[in-house]
């Protein structure tokens, strides 16, 4: 099935880990809703298992993780692994937050489809999702 024809796309915005800074997650969720997407924001402190379960149950097209506490590598690796184990490895994962430039490539090597550091334009994020 060609995913590009299924509109609006469903997006899961999730905050894994213990970090409570949710401004970015909420702002991006609002921007994506304004752009016509259907957005599910699951709130603070979701475990990797919870995020994967929600993604599968809600049949989302993209998972966007928001991480600002420096543990993006560890959490993303665990999430991608869990997704693959659950047979949902085809769902693209994007990561946003405080991501040092040196980690962008490392995240992509882990299997992340897009990295959006603080300050990324909404347009860039929207274009990314439309082009998946």
């Amino acid at each position: 099935m060609d995913n590009k024809e299924r509109l609006p796309r469903r997006i899961l915005i999730a905050k894994p880990g213990l970090d409570g800074h949710d401004r970015g997650a909420k702002v991006v969720a609002t921007a994506l809703r304004d752009a016509g997407f259907e957005v599910i924001y699951t709130g603070l402190r979701q475990t990797v298992d919870q995020i994967v379960n929600t993604a599968i149950q809600e049949d989302v097209d993209v998972i966007g993780l928001s991480i600002l506490s420096g543990v993006h590598m560890e959490l993303t690796k665990r999430l991608v692994k869990k997704l693959r184990e659950s047979g949902a490895g085809n769902i693209p994962v994007a990561v946003g937050g405080v991501i040092p430039p040196g980690d962008v490539e490392k995240l992509k090597e882990v299997g992340v489809a897009g990295v959006f550091s603080v300050g990324t334009s909404f347009k860039k994020i929207v274009d990314f999702i439309r082009n998946i």
């Binding site: 213990l18 970090d19 402190r45 506490s69 420096g70 543990v71 560890e74 959490l75």
Partner: peptide, 22 residues
């Protein structure tokens, strides 16, 4: 660090990667 702020001890394996981080 976040585990302390959220009431987890450093020896809890669930939060290991966040110990001493922020």
């Amino acid at each position: 660090d976040l585990p302390t702020q959220m009431g987890f001890d450093s020896d809890n394996p669930e939060i290991e990667e966040e110990v001493g981080r922020v």
